[in-house]
């Protein structure tokens, strides 16, 4: 599925749509260059899931946890990760519960030590806007993508 988003606001709105389509447990990978809007999309997703506070960049903390009604969202940013093996030491395995939703920015830096994604979201620059490509990688991902396609605007 491809979506063209013209602004940061529409990126955030797309995140909120995504909130209505995904179910825990799920793993989402977000790929895109610096400034592509990965955290902006995550902010929309979190707001869509009922989180009211700020959504800070996890670049320095590597992981920001959010407890929401019925699920926990873990926002990971592996940008500063030097070695994928490090993920083991961060105790991530303990966070893979039935109620867990993972959103992983820069998943390429954690290859081999991350769970496989259900949904892969690639963000590319398209003029001043962004072109999103959403791909399902598992049956759960297919189901989420189906719901996303059928959501009313």
């Amino acid at each position: 599925m491809e979506v063209l988003l013209e602004s940061a606001e529409s990126q955030q709105a797309f995140g909120a749509r995504l909130a209505r389509a995904v179910r825990a447990p799920s793993v989402l990978y977000l790929e895109g260059d610096l400034g592509a809007g990965k955290t902006t999309l995550t902010r929309g997703l979190l707001h869509g899931l009922g989180h009211l506070g700020p959504v800070r960049s996890p670049t320095y903390t590597l992981i920001e946890p959010y407890r929401l009604t019925g699920l926990s969202l873990y926002h990971l940013d592996l940008y500063r990760l030097g070695d994928p093996e490090e993920l083991d030491y961060l105790g991530l395995r303990d966070l893979l519960g039935q109620d867990a939703l993972w959103v992983v920015e820069w998943p390429g830096r954690g290859l081999g030590f991350l769970p496989k994604p259900d949904l892969l979201i690639q963000i590319r620059y398209e003029g001043q806007g962004r072109l999103l490509t959403v791909t399902a990688r598992t049956a759960a991902g297919e189901a989420a993508l189906g719901r996303l396609r059928n959501l009313p605007d």
Binding site: L62, L81, G82, D83, E85, E86, Y89, L90
Partner: peptide
């Protein structure tokens, strides 16, 4: 390593 390595830091 091009980034921070928490275990190496410890």
């Amino acid at each position: 390593y091009g980034g921070v390595v928490p275990e190496l830091a410890s």
